[in-house]
Structures are given as C-alpha cells and as structure tokens.
C-alpha cells in the first residue's frame, strides 16, 4: 500500500542560524553570575540548567537528528547519577565518578539499545520506556545498594564547595561535551544520521547499516546523558529514585519540544525555558505535570516544530511584511 505521509519531523537541521540563541542563552545565564551578589539559589538554578542542556542535547542526537524518540533516557541519566554517587561514596574521586557515571550508562545503552533498535521506531519508543522502567524498579528495590526510596547522601567535593566554582566547573564540562556533539553532528556520521531521519528506507537501500548507526547514536546519547547525571549527583547532594523515574525521561522530551528539535541549540534553549518555567510553576501548584502536559499537547497539536517553530513562523511573517512594506515604499517613492 502506498502511503502518502509527509514527514515534517525530519526537515533540514539548522544550526548556524540558531547559534545566536545559545550565545544569548549562555550570556543571560552567565552574566548574573559574574555579578555574583546574586543569591546562591540562582547560581544553582543556572547550574542545573547547564546540566539539563547537556542532557537535552544528547537526547536530541537521537530525536532531532536521527528521528528516534526515546521515552527512556532516565535510565542513562539515572544510572549515571547512581554510579557516580556510589563511586563518590567509596572513593570520593570526582574524575572517577564522572568516568564511571558515563561509561556505565553507555554500557547499559549498548545492551538495551541492541534490542531497542532491532525493529521499527514504534518498538524503539516502547522498548526504551520499558527498559527505563526496569532500571527504575531495580534501583527502587535494591535497597542494600541504593537505599531504595530513602536515596543516598552524596559526599561533598571539597574543592567545589563554593556554588560559583561548581557552576564554572559544570559550565566547562557541559561546553566541552556540547562541542563534541557539535563535531559529531557535522561529521560524516552526523550526516548519515540526518539521512536516516529524512528517509530511512532510502538510506538502507544505499547500503548504510541503519540499525548499527542508530545504535551508535543511542550509545553516545547514553554516554552523555549519563555524564549529565554523573555531575548532577554531587551537585544535588541527595539522590533518590526520582532521578530515574519516567518523569525524568520526560524532561528532555519537554525541552526539545519547547526549544525545537531541528536546531542544534534547540534543546539548550528548551532547557532554560523548562527549568525556569518549572521553577515558577511549582511555586503555584504541585500539578506541574498537568501544566506541562497541556502545554506539550497544544504545541504538538498546533506547531509540529515546537515553540521555536512558532517564533520562526512569526519571524518570517514579520520579515515578509517588512520587505513588502519596503517594496511599497520604493514604489511610492
């Protein structure tokens, strides 16, 4: 049966155009810090934004670039959190924690990913969610190791005691990691992912082992998602299974829908919007899930390209009208 479904999800990925978005983002986040009279609360908020940016960008390698929607990234973020916390507790070495907290999730991604990419995107969405639930239950139930519902208190890192110092450490780590994503996306491998997104059958047809490529992307996303979790553990200080919960898998999804999956910096912008919004919403109501659920629903319904898509449409609309107006003026003159 011929199917005439046009796929708008896999348009050209833009990034140069939106670098300014990130520049603005970084500066708006960084400037208040430079004037560090701001209370530590905001510095911490900025730090968590940074971590979420890494989480979102790594997720978007799968979603925006490859066209595979994972509902289970919390498995990798969360296992990063727990592995890092456990290493810190026994060795108190941050480098070791970061290393373990990203390699362990990557290994997990190899095993789970092998099954997730085995069939269609449909299976991918279901299986990522299912495996994440497995990891969640495992962490929840393995009390002797993880403390179960009570969680773990992560030892402080002496040289990162000052929130501002910690912030700059996170900033550096995130920038380097995001830069690596940028390189990946612009490499031949990255182009391959985009072509899988745009037309998987055609890509398969020209002899690209699609399954393998998607698996590699999945592992990379797992690695960096894990790294985001690994640094999150000492940052947040007390960890609990909440960080592996499905709502944690939801986080990058929301960020990407807000920021737009089709821009390299989309998830970064989305992370800022998400964290700030959530901070505000939770001031007023506990039902932030409902609020975000409704917002997502409306965005998906009216603008397939996210909030950035709406802004872009408004932008081109204004531009068109300006050029029209200019043309009119010229004619009149």
């Amino acid at each position: 049966m011929k199917k005439a479904i046009h796929s708008p999800a896999c348009g050209e990925v833009k990034d140069s155009l939106y670098s300014w978005g990130f520049v603005i983002a970084v500066t708006t986040v960084a400037i208040p810090l430079i004037f560090s009279q701001f209370p530590p609360y905001y510095i911490k908020l900025a730090s968590s934004i940074m971590i979420m940016i890494l989480y979102g960008v790594s997720f978007n390698l799968l979603y925006g670039y490859t066209g595979y929607l994972s509902f289970g990234q919390a498995a990798y973020f969360g296992s990063g959190v727990y592995v890092s916390a456990l290493i810190l507790r026994s060795t108190s070495s941050l480098p070791l924690a970061l290393l373990g907290g990203s390699i362990a999730p990557a290994l997990l991604a190899i095993v789970f990913g092998y099954f997730c990419v085995k069939r269609s995107k449909l299976y991918f969405a279901m299986l990522t969610l299912a495996f994440a639930q497995l990891i969640y239950t495992l962490i929840f139930k393995w009390r002797s190791l993880t403390g179960g519902d009570d969680g773990i208190v992560v030892p402080r890192i002496p040289y990162l005691h000052n929130p501002l110092t910690f912030y700059f450490f996170i900033l550096a780590l995130v920038l380097v990691s995001v830069f690596i994503h940028w390189v990946i996306v612009h490499s031949p491998f990255g182009h391959m992912l985009k072509s899988i997104c745009q037309n998987q059958e055609r890509t398969e047809f020209i002899g690209v082992p699609v399954e393998k490529q998607v698996l590699v992307a999945f592992i990379i996303a797992g690695f960096f998602g894990g790294l985001a979790g690994a640094i999150y553990a000492p940052f947040i200080g007390v960890i609990s299974p909440k960080l592996v919960h499905w709502t944690m898998s939801l986080t990058p999804v929301i960020m990407v829908v807000f920021g737009g999956a089709k821009h390299f910096w989309g998830p970064a912008i989305g992370a800022i919007v998400y964290i700030v919004l959530k901070d505000i919403i939770t001031l007023y109501t506990d039902n932030w899930l409902l609020v975000f659920g409704l917002m997502l629903l409306i965005i998906v319904l009216i603008s397939p390209r996210g909030v950035m898509g709406v802004l872009e449409n408004i932008g081109t609309y204004i531009k068109k009208n300006i050029t029209k107006a200019n043309l009119m003026k010229e004619r009149i003159n």
Binding site: L122, V253, L289, L290, F292, G293, L296, V300, L301
Partner: peptide, 19 residues
C-alpha cells in the same frame, strides 16, 4: 502526522491523566 508526533501526543495524555 508523522509517527513521532503521534507518540508525543499520546505521551502527553499520560502526564495529563495521571496528574
């Protein structure tokens, strides 16, 4: 719509209904 949006769409229902 593209399947990705369909997944996203019913996924948002989980948040809304559960909450």
């Amino acid at each position: 719509r593209d399947v990705l949006f369909q997944y996203l769409f019913t996924y948002t229902w989980i948040l809304i209904i559960d909450d």
